[in-house]
Design a protein around this nucleic acid. Structure first.
Lengths: 142, 142
DNA sequence: TTACCAGATTGGATTTTTTCCTATATTCAA
DNA sequence: TTGAATATAGGAAAAAATCCAATCTGGTAA
């Protein structure tokens, strides 16, 4: 990540530029992987020994909302189980965390690229659709 | 869920049949949704006021491993961020929780069924492939 | 440039979610 | 029926995320 780029990205999104935010964004970008909040906290702590965890959590989720960074799909903070074991896919409401099942033959046939399959023992392939459900859309948006 | 079915399923999987397990499986099946462990605990507590959370957590994850119940994809216990914001998909190792990105044009074109889209404001559609990575396969399996 | 103030941060407490641990109890095969 | 392997309860602890009040700061308007 080039010098000044983090600042530019934040300004583009009309987010205040603070040293903490710059450091957090750089930490995610330079991780080269898929860090969790604590990994970002540990990395940023090196240069900002007094940064608080709250800042890291708040900032990461702000950046995700603004599309500055991405995330791997998860639903709220707890693991969710499913009585249905046949092949199906999930719609997840990002507001209320409701999960709806759906089936679509087209999605059931997906085959991960051969290159992956040779190195990775594939157990399950599912499609996750994130969005906002009808109920939440009818409530006034935050 | 029919009488005796939970017991049958457990026996089929060579899992000991205990009243707690039967109650937990029934709770998931009858939830009609995607409960988290605490919701299952609260439901099962009605009939088993002394059940411990540990039993619920342990049993749910045992049942998931045996394929008795499913789950919505998650990666370990913490939210994972991603520096990459362009469209891509994820391979997740269920052992070490490593996440690998991959791209596949075929996957990028997926459109959720029209019926869903009309009710649900779709923000993102991604494919998650779960499996075991090369490193973990080379280690002896548990 | 300065002063203001909306918004950001800190540090610590708190909540939520999950796991660990040990004594006791139970399942089921023989 | 009994013994060994396995499961459970209950409570402590760890891990993950959030809350909150006091303080500070970035950006802008004068």
């Amino acid at each position: 990540m080039k010098r000044g780029e983090a600042e530019r990205i934040l300004r583009e999104q009309r987010a205040r530029v603070t040293p903490q935010r710059v450091a957090i964004l750089r930490a995610v970008e330079s991780s080269g992987s898929h860090p969790d909040a604590d990994a970002v906290y540990r990395q940023v702590s090196r240069g900002h020994p007094h940064i608080s965890r709250d800042t890291v959590y708040r900032t990461l989720s702000m950046m995700e909302e603004k599309g500055i960074i991405g995330s791997v799909l998860s639903v709220g903070n707890s693991k969710r189980y499913d009585p249905v074991t046949t092949k199906h896919h999930h719609l997840v409401c990002i507001r209320c965390k409701k999960i709806l099942d759906f089936s679509a033959k087209e999605f059931d046939r997906l085959e991960p690229p051969a290159k992956m399959v040779s190195r990775f023992q594939v157990l399950r392939t599912t499609v996750q659709v994130e969005g906002v459900c009808e109920d939440c859309r009818n409530r006034k948006k935050t």
